[in-house]
Structures are given as structure tokens and as C-alpha cells.
Amino acid sequence: MNLLRSRLVQAALILIVSYLIFQFAIRPPAPFSVLSLYMGIVLLAVLVYVSSDSDSWRAFLRPMHATLVDPGKRALRLALMIVIPLLLGYYAYTQAAAKPQAPPELRAVHPAPPDTIQFRGKDFKIAGGDNPLRKDAAAIPKHVAAGGEIYVRNCMYCHGDNLDGKGHFAHGFNPPPANFQDPGTIAMLQEAFLFWRIAKGGPGLPKEATPWNSVMPAWEDRLTEEQIWQVIMYLYDATGQQPRRWETAHGAH
């Protein structure tokens, strides 16, 4: 019990338990980049915890101080002098050694769309553009049904029959196909943004979305403008998501 009262042991325990939680309780496993971020924050919090009053801080430092100067701890001191550099060296090696795996990469998840695009030779406004098929409310079910058919014929193989990005081919691709059920994808975007992504596909990604390795085809060669709007309507309808809208009050500014 006495050992548990030691501030140093408490700090070490908090770090170990936090690491075990982050490493094993999160499924699928959190990427290393996020794990290190979380551990960095826990380390900061632990240091604040042990040093937020002077008694605690002294108690935290005492065993370290004793290890450094106490004549009776010579053996431990020597062991640490060997073990710590070795651990650091091992860490440096793991970081510097060449791995067969490609290095981690970062993609801009929602690259900014251009203001206008060329769609089959005509200018097409993306910024602030609306889905023209929504004007006639009575025809919406018809368009959604047509969109469903287009989806099954063209999109399902990658994006999945549940629209969750787990289609037949999905496992072969990096980056994987978008998961439309995720509230962070189409629910965050306007329909015009989707139009741009569907029409221009992977080849039409802007520079900021490097490394441009999305295999999404540019559907403008295969689908008409109406078909693209229809499939967009289907995506929202089938997932129960709403396209992003913008406040209209600002229009008068």
C-alpha cells in the first residue's frame, strides 16, 4: 500500500493504465499518431498533477533525487545508466530504421471545391449551387428511385450496398471508398460539393488533396447531369442524412 502512496509510482501507474486503455480498449486500434498525441496529453496532465502543490512535487522528486545521490542506490544508478540509453537508442532505431511499409500519409478530407467547373463543355457553378431536381417536391421520390438504380449499377461495387464504403472492391483500395453512413462525410457537405466530386472523381482532386491516389472515376463521361443529381438525392435519402444548407439571412448582406 505504501508503494501506491508514492507520487512517482502513482504517476507511472496513470501513464501505464492510460496506455493500456488507449492501446487495447479502442477498437479498431487507434493509429500511432493519435496514440502518441493522447499519451503526450496524459503525460502533461500527470506532470501538472504531481506538481500542483509543493508537497506533492517534493514527494515526486524525492525517489529520483535519492536514486541520483544515495550511496546505497549505486547499483540501481548504474543499471539505469545502462538501461535508459539503451531504451532511447532502441527508440531511435525504431524511428530511423527503414520499414517495408509506406510512411503514414495525410490527406485533406474535404478539399475545397473550385467556384466553377466545366461539365461537358459548359460552366457549372459549384459555390452556392443547388440541386435543381429538388425544386419539384412531387418528383423527388421518382428521382430518388432513379438514383438508387444508378447507384446499384455504378457505385455499389466500391461504396457498398449499405452505403458504408464496404463494397466488393473496397479492400483493394487506399484510400478506401467513402462511407456515406458516417455523419462526417456527406452530411457535412452541400449537394454541389458531391456533384463536383462525382463528376470529376479522383483525377479532378485539387493539389491540396495529394497524393491523388483515389480510384474514383470521373463520372462526367458516363452519367448525365440529371443522373448525378439523382444519385446524390439517393445517397441522402438512403442514409437518412441531410445535405448541408447555408443560412439564407446572409444573402442580403
Binding site: P28, A30, P31, P104, G165, N179, D182
Partner: peptide, 23 residues
């Protein structure tokens, strides 16, 4: 939201969005 991931990590997560941490 969009994490720095290796290919293996992305495969395990099913994308660059983590199904839980992504929230």
C-alpha cells in the same frame, strides 16, 4: 477528423476516419 495513418492502420480502421474516434 482525418488521421495520419499508415496503410495497415487505415486498413484496420476501414479508412482514414476511425469508426469511434472519428466522432
Amino acid at each position: 477528423r482525418s488521421m495520419v495513418v499508415t496503410l495497415d492502420e487505415a486498413r484496420a480502421m476501414g479508412g482514414t476516419h476511425h469508426p469511434i474516434l472519428g466522432f
